[in-house]
Amino acid sequence: MQEDKNMLSKDEISRYSKQIQLTEVGLNGQEKLHAAKVLVIGAGGLGCPALQYLAIAGIGTIGIVDFDLVDLSNLQRQILFNHNDIGKPKAIIASIKIKELNPHISVDIFNEKLNKNNASKIISGFDIILDCTDNFNTRYLINDTCVSLNKSFVYGGIYKFEGQLSVFNYTNRDGIKGPTYRCAFPEIENDETIINCTTTGVIGTLPGIIGTMQANEVIKLITGIGKVCSGKILMYNALDNSMIEIIMTRNEDKITKMLKLYGTQKA
C-alpha cells in the first residue's frame, strides 16, 4: 500500500509531539508545516540557525540558495559548519546537516548565486522566502521577485550588535498587503557603502537570534498563529537587550514603479 506523502508517519508524530501538544499548533498545524515549501536564500550567519529550526520544526520541503564555500572565518557564527567543511559548498553541506537533523524533510539545493536570470524560477517553487543574504543588491532582487510573484518574505539583517526583522509583502487575513523592503528602504545603496560581516565584525550570537526569529515568523505564517511581524521593522540591540518597533506603511506608488521596471528588466 502506498503511503500518503501528506500524512505524518508515527515517527514524525512522535518527533513533533511537543509542537503538536500546543493547542495553537496541533496536528493540523504540524501537517501545514509538513506541506510547506520554504526557501532560505543565504546559508550564512542568519541562514544556518534559520535552517536548523525550520528543519527540526518539520517544514516538509526546504530550499537552500548559496554559491559560497565554507571559510574558517565563518565558523564563529555559521553553526551548521565545522572545520572539516572548510572549502566545501555551503548549500550542499547545509543540506547534509539539516537532513541529519531531520531525515523526514526534503531539501532542494541551489548551489548558485541568486541573480536576475534565475530568481523567478527558483523563488516561484516555494511558499515563503527567507532573506538571509549579506548584500543590498540581492535583498532588492529578492524583494522585487517576491512582490512580482506575490509572495511574503522574511527579512533579517544584522550590523555588529544590532539586528532587524520584518515580514515583507505579507497579505493578512483581510487581504490587505503589508509594506515591502522598498517601502522601508527605497533607495538602492551605493555599492561603496555596502558593509557586511566580511568587512566589519559581528557578534556570533546576533545572527543566531535574528535567524531564529526569522524561522519563528515562518512557523507563524504557515500555522496562522500569533501576530506576524508585518507593517513594522523590529530593531534588536544585543548589547542592551532593547527591542523597538518602527511602524511603516505600504507605498503603492513605489511598488508600481518597481514592478514596471522589473517587467522591463525581465523582458
Binding site: G42, G44, G45, L46, G47, D131, C132, T133, D134, N135, F136, R139, G156, G157, I158, Y159, E162, G163, Q164, A184, F185, E189, I194, I195, N196, C197, T200, V202, P207, I233, M235, I246
Partner: peptide
C-alpha cells in the same frame, strides 16, 4: 530616530 538598512547576514 535615523534608521539605515542592515546588509549583514
Amino acid at each position: 530616530a535615523l534608521l539605515p538598512p542592515y546588509a549583514g547576514g
